[in-house]
Nucleic acid binder design. Structure first.
Length: 216
DNA sequence: AACGAGCTGCGAACTAAATT
DNA sequence: AATTTAGTTCGCAGCTCGTT
């Protein structure tokens, strides 16, 4: 078996997002084919890619009984580092981040992790999407945080919108999107407020709501 | 029992690159 | 130039499992 350029890019991407479900894999495969994509590849195609990588020992996969989709992560051989701890509380969230990330790739963005927190009171976003030198911070939020936390986070994001960030986008369930918007109205200065947007695209299981637009 | 979602095996048609 | 090998894409049939 030979590793194509796209295979390597897929493994790099999996290494950044740590794990993905088949929804994420479908979009990432389409995106990395030509650098952009309007549609994901078929699930059949995505399964074949995963099967090929698994046979080569570069990814592992499992289909947990409580989740109707297969999830995939890179092995040590595939990513050069130890595999992620699975089945943690944050798994649903990480899979949702991967789903969003893959859609950014499909729009021609580069995806990377946010910088590490500089202090315990600091806040790290779920990812950075960059295109043409414009950087957008991405948050995925499936459940609301303690309301007091939004004061801190939105304060920090407001400052960063004054600096290196062009925009902040929250990808949420519709309910969470309402809360985030409301709290942003309270805590983000007007100059920056219109550059922090929310999108209600996930259901409560953290699955992309079929037909939801990816508006960036 | 019937249905839908998701996964796999298989076959077919295609492209790209390496080999002869 | 022809052949071989690897990869890409899709649809269909058949499977399991959970829901109606």
């Amino acid at each position: 078996m030979q590793l194509t350029r796209r295979d390597e890019q897929m493994l790099d991407w999996l290494n950044v997002v740590r794990m993905a479900d088949m929804d994420g894999v479908r979009w990432a495969l389409a995106a990395l084919k030509h650098g952009h994509a309007d549609n994901p590849v078929t699930t059949r195609r995505a399964n074949q890619w995963v099967a090929r990588m698994a046979e080569a020992g570069l990814v592992e996969r499992v289909r947990p009984m409580y989740r109707n989709r297969q999830i995939v992560w890179p092995t040590y051989a595939g990513a050069g580092r130890t595999p992620p701890a699975l089945f943690r509380q944050t798994m649903r969230h990480e899979l949702a981040v991967a789903a969003v990330s893959a859609r950014y790739l499909a729009k021609g963005y580069e995806w990377s992790r946010d910088r590490r927190p500089e202090s315990p009171r600091d806040h790290q976003g779920d990812g950075l999407a960059a295109r043409g030198g414009v950087v957008e911070l991405v948050e995925v939020e499936l459940t609301t945080k303690k309301l007091a936390r939004y004061r801190v986070i939105h304060g920090i994001l407001g400052q960063r919108l004054n600096g290196e960030l062009a925009a902040v986008t929250y990808w949420c369930t519709p309910e969470v999107a309402r809360v985030v918007d409301r709290e942003a109205d309270r805590f983000v200065f007007r100059d920056q407020r219109n550059r922090l947007v929310t999108r209600g695209v996930f259901d409560n299981q953290g699955r992309w709501i079929e037909g939801s637009a990816f508006a960036v």
